[in-house]
Nucleic acid binder design. Structure first.
Lengths: 194, 194
DNA sequence: GTCTATACTTTGATAGAC
DNA sequence: GTCTATCAAAGTATAGAC
C-alpha cells in the first residue's frame, strides 16, 4: 500500500529536525518536502507545529530504537554489541556526511528550557530508550542499578559522540568512545564474575 | 570599569543561546535583553547574526573552560577532579532549573548541517576543550593517545549527561555518569601502573 | 482530504537623523 | 555610538471553495 500523506508529513518533519532542528524547521518547508499543502498539514495536525513535532519525535525515536535494537540483538554478547553500535554509528555518520545522527537530541536541547510539552516528549523517549538499553546488560548478569548505569553511559556517550563528530566532521571521537565504553562494560562484567 | 554595550550584547546572546538555541534567538530579543538598539547591534557586528553568534560562542566557551578548569585544577588528583566535575555539573543543573549547561551544544547541533561557518567555530571550540582536558590525564602519567581517549570520554559523557538531565529535569544521569567515568579513569591509570 | 488565498507576526537587516 | 523608522522575507495559522 502506498504511503499516505500523513506519513509523508511526519517523515519529512523528522528528517528536517535532523538537519535544522525544531525552530529551524518551518511548516512551509514541511509542506514542500512532503508534497502536501497547508490544508493537509493542519487537517492532520490541528495542534499545529507542536503537535506535529511531538508525533515526528516519537516516530523517529521508534525507528531509531529499532535500528539500534537490530545491532544489539544481532551480536553474540554485550561487549560485541556495544562495540558494533559505536562503530556502526561512526560509519553511518561518514556515509551520510554527518547528517544521520540522533533524531531527538537537537530538538531536545532546543525545547528543554522553552517548551514544556515537547520537553516531556523528549524525556519520555530517552527514558524508553534507557529501559530498552538496560535489557542486554541485565541479560549479561548485571543487577538492575548497574545495568541502568551502563545504559546511561552507553546513551550519553553515543549522544556526546554525535555532537563531537558532527561538529568536527570526523568519526574519530565515536571510535574512541567505542573503545572506552567497551572497556567500561568489560570491567563491569568482570566485577560480577570474579 | 563599566561593562560596555558590546559586552552586554555578547553576554546576552550567549545566555539566550543556552535557553533557546541559535534559530530561536532573534536579534530583537538580543537587543531587548542587552538594552541595546538595532543600531548598536549592527554597529558592533556588521556581519549580523552569524558574526555575533561566532563571538558569543567563543566567549561562552572560554568562560566555561575557566569554570571547568577551576574544578579540575583545585582537585588533588585526576580521579577526584573528574568526580567533582560531574557532581558540580549535576548541582549546577539543579540550582538553575536545568538551564546552565553546555553553552555550545545546542547551537552546535543546530548548525552542524546547515551553517558551515558556525559549524567550524563549534569544531574549534570542542577541539580546544579536548586539548585542555588532555592535560590532567597526561600529568597523571597516561600517554597521549590514552589521554585523548579519556578526554573524549569525559567531554562526551558530560554533554550526553546535559542532554539527558535537561530533558528529564533530573540530575540522576549526571551522577551515574560521574561514577562510571571515574571507574574508567581509575582502570586506565591502573593499567599504566600495574 | 486537498487546495488557494490570505491574515498576522516575527525575522534579519538597512537607512538616515541625531 | 545610538536612535527610530522601515523593508522584504519568512514564520505560524486560518478560512472557505472544491
Amino acid at each position: 500500500m502506498a504511503i499516505g500523506t500523513r506519513d509523508r508529513i511526519v517523515e519529512t518533519t523528522a528528517k528536517l529536525f535532523l538537519e535544522r532542528g525544531y525552530t529551524g524547521t518551518g511548516m512551509k518547508a514541511v509542506a514542500l518536502g512532503s508534497n502536501a499543502t497547508f490544508g493537509s498539514l493542519y487537517h492532520y495536525f490541528p495542534g499545529g507545529k507542536e503537535e506535529l513535532a511531538a508525533e515526528a519525535l516519537r516516530t523517529a525515536a521508534d525507528g531509531y530504537a529499532s535500528r539500534v535494537g537490530e545491532v544489539l540483538g544481532g551480536a553474540p554478547d554485550v561487549v560485541t554489541a556495544v562495540r558494533l553500535a559505536f562503530e556502526g554509528a561512526a560509519v553511518t555518520l561518514q556515509d551520510t556526511d554527518y547528517a544521520d545522527a540522533c533524531p531527538i537530541a537537537t530538538v531536545a536541547l532546543e525545547v528543554a528550557s522553552s517548551n514544556e510539552a515537547l520537553r516531556q516528549v523528549t524525556a519520555e523517549i530517552f527514558e524508553g530508550w534507557l529501559v530498552f538499553l538496560e535489557i542486554p546488560f541485565l541479560a549479561a548478569g548485571l543487577d538492575q542499578p548497574r545495568a541502568r548505569e551502563l545504559a546511561i553511559l552507553f546513551l550519553a556517550a553515543l549522544e556526546g559522540g554525535f555532537l563531537l563528530c558532527r561538529a568536527a566532521k570526523d568519526p574519530a571521537p565515536m571510535y574512541a568512545l567505542g573503545r572506552t565504553v567497551v572497556e567500561a562494560v568489560e570491567h563491569a562484567l568482570a566485577d560480577t564474575r570474579p
